[in-house]
Design a protein around this nucleic acid. Sequence first.
DNA 1: AAAGCATGTGACAGCGATTGCACCATGGAT
DNA 2: ATCCATGGTGCAATCGCTGTCACATGCTTT
Lengths: 340, 340
Amino acid sequence: MIKATIDDVAELAGVSIKTVSRVFNKESNVRASTREKVEAAIAELNYRPNLSARSLAGNKSFVLALIYGHPGAHYVLDIQEGVLEVCRPQGYELVVHPGVYQDKELTKEVTELILEKRIDGVMLTPPISDHAAVINSLKKHNIPLVRVAPTENKSLSPYVETNDQESSYDMTCQLIALGHQRIGFIAGHPDHRAIGLRFEGYKAALIENQIPIDKTLIEQGDNSFESGEKAARVLLALEQKPTAIFAANDDMAAGVMMVAHQMGLKIPQQISVSGFDDTPVAHQLWPGLTTIRQPIRQMAKKATELLLKQIKGKDVQLPASILSSTIIVRESTGKANVKK
Amino acid sequence: MIKATIDDVAELAGVSIKTVSRVFNKESNVRASTREKVEAAIAELNYRPNLSARSLAGNKSFVLALIYGHPGAHYVLDIQEGVLEVCRPQGYELVVHPGVYQDKELTKEVTELILEKRIDGVMLTPPISDHAAVINSLKKHNIPLVRVAPTENKSLSPYVETNDQESSYDMTCQLIALGHQRIGFIAGHPDHRAIGLRFEGYKAALIENQIPIDKTLIEQGDNSFESGEKAARVLLALEQKPTAIFAANDDMAAGVMMVAHQMGLKIPQQISVSGFDDTPVAHQLWPGLTTIRQPIRQMAKKATELLLKQIKGKDVQLPASILSSTIIVRESTGKANVKK
DNA sequence: AAAGCATGTGACAGCGATTGCACCATGGAT
DNA sequence: ATCCATGGTGCAATCGCTGTCACATGCTTT
């Protein structure tokens, strides 16, 4: 099956190639009857335009780039598949690029990629969605940009986000409602600003409930399992142990559970644990981890729509949509075990 | 920074564009002095050929496709990044396509993708590496193909694989050495043939050690955590319980551990558990899961090299390289607790 | 009835590379 | 001295599409 070209279609339909082009690109000023003729010819020949020719002539590539940091394989893959789901049907292809936030070369890497591949639009995921140098370079080259969950300079580009802060506020309130007063918090990696908001939610809930914020209950993690373990060892060695620990992501929460198990603490009877992200590990742990699920795929889909709109020259309004996360209650949280 | 074209380079170097093209494509019959002049001009202008133009004229796309099934996010992402690491420096881009093995449309989907995007080469990962219809279609269209861990029709294309069977043989032997005689096995999803080999390794080890194969100790799973749970409930309810359970992947092993915990069985004192894959969950479980680590990224890199060789018209010899997996011993396995 | 204006369509020139072929040196074989 | 491979180089066509612009056509408007 050799591919038909625009000339074949034009000949079959008895029009010029320009008209075929117009029909294919849904331009206006084509008579309905002509359009139908052309469409029939397209269908009959199973015509697909040659992408390279299109790009070359039109100076577009029909390729989007997804620059991702590494907040976890499921997150990345979910985003990736969400993007594909939206962009493929619209004739756009996706190129992925794993980037390291701390890498000095990142900006150069991304810029080269964009220039060489003539990328039409770029999506940035956390933590790179807050990478100022990358964003600036993209803006300078005038590349349409959309960001997932940025926390800074939100006016620089359209974006999508979730109500992380609110969710962690809710989660904290829920723990308080279970009778917990000493709630430990393990913060995420400082580079990853979106995760930082989770800490704000925690604080807000304590304040709202007039529980003093005790700095000894707050540990800095870096999103890794190991950092969760380390923080848990500190928190659970306190004279006045917390009765609950809220980790800013599931991996760190898993670390907490590991330490609790090793110390022979019963979850949730002696210590409640909750996480954030609802990664698969959350329900594979024992007991199941109470956590917060983000609508990752939806965010990606929404973001892709915003990006394509920009590319097509439509105005995109800020601020972009906020999608809601959900608390998933499992067995790792329970009533506080307060000594009388 | 506006991109230089081949004409700019030719002018600066004082040669024709044809010669620039020859230099860039490392063709022969260029005088060394000319080559140097051109290379200097390329460097000075920071010239990068326009991909679209190259594709159009040369009828190549410089794009590879990775068609992946879903054996787990880490596996997929590892493969993906391994491929990128090799193909990018050689000027090839990657397009990813999540495919569902059971999807009737998969072959059509892949074929369309290949035809529309003029993909230069395709990589298939398990379980799609054994999808006969997809492979046939690719062969029919004469697209260079490489497969990761195929189990059937290995002569159809170059491939890479690991010694899954041998590793699970080793793992089983190790359990036997710890005194286990009743070793349960939870098999993987039947579509995923590579995982099937793991069962063969288990059987071989038993036979070698003259332990009768007891069908009641063998359960069918489907790679999911839940199927591991279900299988474990059956195995651990047996009158003659196994003293160890070997699951064909980590997720199922995690399910086993969950059930064991729920039943109050101590791991590994009362029941040893081992998995396969060394996914992150393996060391986040408590106790840490003894498992087998595959060199996923290396496989991807090797496979990409094989693919690019084919594309460039070099002969690739079968069979392809076998990379070794490693047993990772953690705390979930221990001496058998045999009743006297 | 003439002018003006949208609407519909096609001819043709690129886009920036590759590729086939012609051409010119050069040096060894005859 | 002549011829012929052979290495080295350039001209011009080509890939399949889009964008510009000119040109028809049919309808209002005066």
